[in-house]
Design a protein around this nucleic acid. Sequence first.
DNA 1: TTAAATATTGATAACTATTACTGTTTTGGA
DNA 2: TCCAAAACAGTAATAGTTATCAATATTTAA
Lengths: 136, 136
Amino acid sequence: MSTLKYSRQREAIKTFLKNRTDHPTADTVYTCLREAYPNISLGTVYRNLSLLEQLGEISRISTGDSAEHYDGNMDPHQHFICSHCHKVYDVRIPEIHSLLGKAVENVPGKIEAFHANFYGVCHECQKEPITLEHNP
Amino acid sequence: MSTLKYSRQREAIKTFLKNRTDHPTADTVYTCLREAYPNISLGTVYRNLSLLEQLGEISRISTGDSAEHYDGNMDPHQHFICSHCHKVYDVRIPEIHSLLGKAVENVPGKIEAFHANFYGVCHECQKEPITLEHNP
DNA sequence: TTAAATATTGATAACTATTACTGTTTTGGA
DNA sequence: TCCAAAACAGTAATAGTTATCAATATTTAA
């Protein structure tokens, strides 16, 4: 097993995620960090996002959108994913965690994580005027 | 809006999914259906999976694995995803649905779907002997 | 029953998110 | 300061999915 060494880039990725309340994709992390680290590599971003996830410092949200999203907030919470603008909102239903004890019996393995996603159209997108799908 | 026309392929994809208890990927659907329909196209499979999902006849499971999985069972239930073999198991915790009423208030939009995923290593994989990661 | 209209298909090219590779740089302990 | 290992930047390769398009199948109405 390889020992972990410090890296400025990894630290930046981690603090970047911890300071965001939205749930950026790898590409967003990359684009934003390039301002402070102009020659950070996209591969480095992906490599460290995976690593940080394995270490349990961040979590990966599979939204069904084409790209994965990342969340620096490890407090137990849920997500609402807008199927129109693809934004990921935080949701808090504390009661849901009391069920996890019951889940243990009904599940064919050892639970390491629990993700609960709500899907729908967010209020912002509902406000928007109706647009034609195909403009001539 | 275009009106839907019957298609033998779409019907086959739908009944295939309804008769499975596992949660195949698009590629698995494709490979299996090729036995009965030797020149069905992978594009056709993808196109109809998306369509059937929009119609609410099947649902798409984003497991965090590289490929999406599809589920023909629309009864409310949850999933356990093995992070080792990537199998998707059905889980039933009926109590979880009584919470959805409460969720409505805490969610920034209109809920159209709810997915709850447990992640961990399944009993099958826990049984397995430890294998070297790299065989020479 | 036939014909026109259009949705769907198969085949393939294009796209895009992610991973793998490689030579160079950085880190941390001796 | 020196060395081994980890991490990096840059880039190529992979894989899942979507788009394109000419040919085919389905539906409606004459």
